[in-house]
């Protein structure tokens, strides 16, 4: 069925991981224009295509679960939308799923308050899962986990323990160590993979450390609800 409002799930893989969130929005907007899809424009002096994105993904992190809502000027079928857009999107940014957006649905950034990340670490960096398991156990047993944040040159101490919903350590077949982190994000308080890596003494830009976002959810009655 043709729809006026579509939600798309898309990837940010390969070279696209080196682009910022703002760069990626430009990639998508230009693709929409190349695909000649009937996107709706905002009113005013500088009309912008009506595309509402999910939470920004930090440069360097890959994802297969990014979300954006598209407001269309004419009803368009989800399958046609997906096929036309994928034909012109760069490799690494491909739409994997399209669905109508429910009536009166709030913005994605308001809805989404949980993000899952998978951190994969090469054996040269962390030799075995047990080292990290121990660290994770320690962290989760603490009542507060303090990190330093810097904003406009001012340092602030923040307790991120409430935002560390879950951390699970495992070992892959290739001998790499994985941490699956479920984090709280959004306006009610948030942490991010960079801070989680920091707890293990690791860095996002470090060779041998890869981070992928694996899920975006809204939390309702202690259940994770998918948005597409």
């Amino acid at each position: 069925m043709a729809e006026l409002r579509l939600r798309a799930q898309y990837t940010k893989l390969g070279d696209l991981r080196f682009t910022s969130h703002l760069d990626l929005t430009r990639v998508i907007e230009r693709a929409v224009r190349r695909a000649q899809l009937p996107i709706a424009y905002s009113e005013g002096f500088h009309p912008k295509p009506k595309i509402a994105y999910g939470p920004a993904l930090a440069l360097g992190i890959t994802s297969r679960v990014e979300l954006a809502d598209f407001q269309l000027a004419r009803p368009t079928e989800a399958a046609v939308f997906q096929q036309k857009l994928n034909a012109v999107l760069p490799q690494g940014c491909q739409i994997t799923k399209v669905a109508p957006v429910p009536e009166n649905e709030p913005a994605l950034t308001t809805l989404i308050d949980r993000a899952a990340y998978r951190i994969t670490v090469d054996p040269e960096v962390v030799p075995s899962a047990s080292t990290l398991s121990k660290a994770v156990q320690d962290i989760l047993e603490q009542e507060t986990v303090i990190v330093q944040r810097e904003k406009k040159g001012r340092r602030r101490r923040v307790d991120i323990r409430p935002y560390l919903i879950d951390l699970v350590v495992s070992q892959t077949g290739e001998g790499k160590v994985q941490v699956d982190a479920l984090l709280q994000i959004g306006s009610a308080g948030a942490t991010n993979p960079k801070e989680v890596l920091g707890l293990f003494g690791l860095e996002l830009a470090q060779p041998g450390v890869a981070v992928e976002r694996t899920g975006l959810y809204t939390c309702a009655n202690n259940h994770l609800v998918e948005l597409i």
């Binding site: 390969g14 080196f18 996002l204 830009a205 060779p207």
Partner: peptide, 19 residues
């Protein structure tokens, strides 16, 4: 790509895979 790009400013300068 594995060792350098995440460390430098504006790594998208060095990709060569633009549309």
């Amino acid at each position: 790509q594995d060792e350098i790009l995440r460390k430098v400013t504006k790594p998208a300068r060095y990709l060569g895979s633009e549309v």
